[in-house]
Amino acid sequence: MRLASAMALCGLMAAGCTTDRVATEFGDLKTAFDETKSAIEPKLAPGLEADRQAEISAAAANRDIWTLGNDCSNELATGVFLPSATCTLEKIRVGDRAPVIGEATALKRKLTVLSAYLGSLEALSDATLESDLNAAYATAVASFSDLSKAAELEDLTTFLAERQANAEKSGAVVSAAVSALRYKRMRSVVLASDEDVRQIVRESVLHALNLGVDPKLPGAVADLRAADQAVLLADSSDTAAYRAAMVALENKHSAFMTYYRGTLTYRLTLVAELHGKLAAALRSHGSAEDVVAYLESLRALSDLLKE
């Protein structure tokens, strides 16, 4: 399998371990997370609207100052007295009133933080950063070479010819250096953030439950636990009754797990799980097997999140 042999090689040359091979997977994970976030947002719409109205009420009661901004007077580009494209509303809070934040707003904000974070990891794992740098370097050397020939600057021409002759070697050195820098930064960022990502997902899941993002979920969990308690408290000497409770538990469990895997709340928890696995793989400098296992679960997760 392509991934396995690539990662085995990475494991062997630990010093040269790069983020290159996780670049596509990061892209997939980011896309999959964004799709989950987009699926959640419509469900937040009523909550967000309620939060908006609550903020307006608080602003009115506090006699805040609302007005059209200065860019609404005349158009910046032409000077005509039409509002500019940058015309916004000035909302000035009087005194030290804190803005009203509702639960839907809080959840949306947390999802945005996670999205930006995954996006930064995706950018950091992009190997075109060094290929672009190398290309720019090669172009610069070639252009300076043309200049020095045109201006008959012999010493410079010789110097640049040497640079061009070495271009492949120095290109490889630059690539390796930039790759290593990216890997180090990613490793440091992910390890520093593991607990916090779990915490943010935890907070998000609880908000999602409160907001009814998956309206049937709290009830389904309560039913599942009730079925468990029913079996545990049943008199096992009454075989018929005990049997009935066992059947009920097994059916409830099976139905719940199927339902649960399709919920948006569950998909959120997977982001935390996955980030944890990434941190573990990076912590151990990615033994080849660990990293392969991680990449496989990343792929499985992004497929799941896209369903």
Partner: peptide, 25 residues
């Protein structure tokens, strides 16, 4: 959790780490 609506410490720290990642890029 319904009472914890301001940006949490975890959010602030992840924002800072996001900036670190973007800074290198």
């Amino acid at each position: 959790q319904a009472t914890q609506l301001d940006p949490s410490e975890a959010e602030k720290r992840v924002r800072a780490q996001t900036r670190r990642a973007n800074a290198l890029v």
